[in-house]
Amino acid sequence: MSRNKEYAMYWGCWVPSRQPSVEAACRKVMDRFGIGIRDMEGVSCCPDPVVTERLQREMWLALAARNISIANSMGMDLATVCNGCYETFFEAIETLKTDNTLREEVKKVLEQIGKPLPSSTSLKHIVEILGQDIGIDEIKNLSTNKLSKLNVAVHPGCHLFRAHDREKVRDKPKLLEDIVDATGAKRVDYGIQRFCCGYPHRVVEEEFSLKMMLAQKLERMWEEGADCIVVSCPACNIQFEFGQLELKRKYKMSFGEGIPVVHVVELVALALGIKPEEFGLHTHRGPTKNIITKLEK
């Protein structure tokens, strides 16, 4: 375990303005394990790896490079709690390394706003910080075993499969599963973990996204007895939480009172015995109170 390690934490857009409980849980968990996280001042949207990148790659890369440059100026590695932000920074770092033309264009743009082109940067998803810097054993040792009654369906999300080598695409999703196991929760195998939650499709064709993608996953999770869903991506979180509300309202499809959704740092916070009200678990739109009820039984 690498205690005293410090990261420039990129919270992204979703977490601070939609899911502050993820930020609160993350701060408390990192503090508990002695990992320093420093907020990045003046960062923008990563920007998102779907809309902005498709509209104009130069804009997308320049903003991503500016954000990475802020982490550089802090002298720290860059960390994120979001799969989408991870995807953007991963690809931006690669592009700046390999595409000379774009790198020179971005360099000129950054110079004009007084920022240097970022140098070599190490990027980590929170799953890697939990599973590698802190370590599975350390999480296991500090977990209170309170979660043993909780059946958990893990949804890694598409961008968590991003890796430099083809052989490593499953490393981070596997790490996520190992973290969940270390908390003492019971992981249910619902068979279609790799399947997309449907979030990217939702804004194009909502019915397809909800009925053909989200509902497929929810049905399998529900059949396997999942008490909650664990994600590592705020966008997937939104899709599972709001998607269930929409499925119920528009298509009369429901799964009991709804399956609650938490980010993996929130699950670890619960495992460490941090009280749910301390990190605002109740602020989720889904029935997270049912997790507490289950744990108190």
Binding site: P20, A24, R27, D39, G42, V43, S44, G280
Partner: peptide, 8 residues
């Protein structure tokens, strides 16, 4: 939650 001000 006593979270710090967003610095973005």
């Amino acid at each position: 939650m006593q979270l710090p001000e967003v610095q973005t």
